[in-house]
């Protein structure tokens, strides 16, 4: 995170980071929820979608923490 110097970036950095965090969280949900949905359709089951959604949320939050949580 050394490249994202908060003082030099000002509020632009904040806008971009906020948008990125939201997009990561949403794409996590969509990606793994989508994988679960496809598995459900394919295997004729109904429990992959919730698992996929949960995995997606976890992956999204984890990624946000890894990318943005350590800048202090």
């Amino acid at each position: 995170m050394a490249a994202r110097v908060p003082t030099a970036m000002g509020e632009h950095g904040g806008t971009d980071q906020g948008l990125r965090i939201i997009s990561i969280l949403i794409s996590g949900l969509l990606l793994y929820g989508g994988v679960g949905w496809v598995l459900d359709r394919w295997l004729q089951t109904s429990w992959w979608l919730p698992i996929g959604l949960i995995v997606g949320v976890i992956a999204g939050i984890y990624l946000v923490i890894m990318k943005f949580g350590r800048s202090e």
Binding site: R20, S23, I24, I26, S27, G28, L31, V55, A59, G60, Y62, L63, M66, K67, R70
Partner: peptide, 23 residues
Amino acid sequence: PAGVPWPLWFLIIPLEFISNFIA
């Protein structure tokens, strides 16, 4: 992203790919 242990790569890489190159 740096510091992700390898068992989680398969989870993180598609997510980062979508967020950076598609979203």
